[in-house]
Design a protein around this nucleic acid. Sequence first.
DNA 1: GCCAACGTTGGC
DNA 2: GCCAACGTTGGC
Length: 158
Amino acid sequence: MACWLFKTEPAEFSIDQLAASPGGIARWDGIRNYQARNYLRDRVAIGDSVLIYHSSCKIPGIAGTATVVCSGYPDPAQFDPHSPYFDLKASPDNPRWFAVDIRFENRFANLLPARNLKKDPELSDMVLFSNGRLSVQPVTDRERQHILSLAKVSPGPA
DNA sequence: GCCAACGTTGGC
DNA sequence: GCCAACGTTGGC
């Protein structure tokens, strides 16, 4: 089982919206970056663990966890001319962008602020800090374990 | 709102 | 294929 960090702007789609989705399941779509696309298309698998990261908000950080319930498939939004994610150059025969489905697992009692995680020696190698703009990124098992242990002790905003 | 870092585009 | 110009991301 692999682990991933998915970034989202909570104003667009938050972990609460995920939790409120039918069955706690939602499509993770609208990813328009090739490196992230490659992960969604080729690597993200059913049963993988996901850390949900809130970005571009008051306190950016990890908000909770989810599980992958459907691996990569063409993102329907790319074919919809009314969608902000429409892509003129994509076609069903030759899809350019991919989505996965995830199911809500847990919302941390206290969000883990990125500025705290950044100071944590256990997490110094996280992709989050070397390529902060990548919206789908791999997380090592060690990083995941550490983050989950932090979430349990509920450190809260420092 | 600023700005640094990074990604994409397009002329050559 | 290079690289300058431009656009986007995202923390602050």
